[in-house]
C-alpha cells in the first residue's frame, strides 16, 4: 500500500491485476473481506469499500451467504479499460521524459526496438 492514494482503490486495483494476470480466473472466489483486511493490514471497512466498487463495476459478483466471485467476461473488460488508459498513463509520461532528456522520436523508437530484441 502506498501513501496518498485512497487505500480502497489500491485494494480494488490489486484484485483487478490478479484477474488480468489470470491468477484469479473468472468464476474464482475472492478472499473474504476479513482476509483481505488482515492480509493488507487495513481496516475491514476499507477492504469492503474496494470490493464493493468492483461489484458495482461488474468485475465481481456477490453470492449471498457464500462470498464474492470473479464475473464472466471481467478479464476482457478490465483489459479493454486498461488499454484505453495506456496512452495517458504510459506513453505520455514516456514522451515527456524523452523530451526532457533530448531523445528525439526516432531515437526513442530505436530504443524500443532494441529493448524488444533482447
Amino acid at each position: 500500500m502506498d501513501d496518498g492514494r485512497p487505500i480502497f482503490l489500491q485494494v480494488a486495483e490489486q484484485i483487478e491485476n490478479e484477474v488480468i494476470e489470470g491468477s484469479m480466473p473468472e468464476g474464482a472466489q475472492v478472499p473474504s473481506i476479513n482476509a483481505l483486511a488482515a492480509f493488507h493490514r487495513i481496516n475491514p471497512a476499507t477492504a469492503l469499500k474496494g470490493v464493493t466498487m468492483l461489484v458495482d463495476t461488474g468485475v465481481l459478483y456477490k453470492q449471498r451467504g457464500i462470498g464474492m466471485f470473479v464475473a464472466a467476461g471481467a478479464r476482457e473488460r478490465l483489459m479493454a479499460a486498461r488499454r484505453d488508459n495506456f496512452r495517458a498513463e504510459y506513453i505520455r509520461p514516456l514522451l515527456n521524459e524523452a523530451a526532457k532528456l533530448g531523445i528525439n522520436p526516432v531515437q526513442l523508437s530505436d530504443l524500443i526496438g532494441k529493448e524488444l530484441q533482447q
Partner: peptide
C-alpha cells in the same frame, strides 16, 4: 505489528 494484527482480526 502483533498488536495491529490481533486488533484487526479480533475487531473483524
Amino acid at each position: 505489528h502483533t498488536f495491529y494484527d490481533r486488533l484487526l482480526a479480533d475487531y473483524a
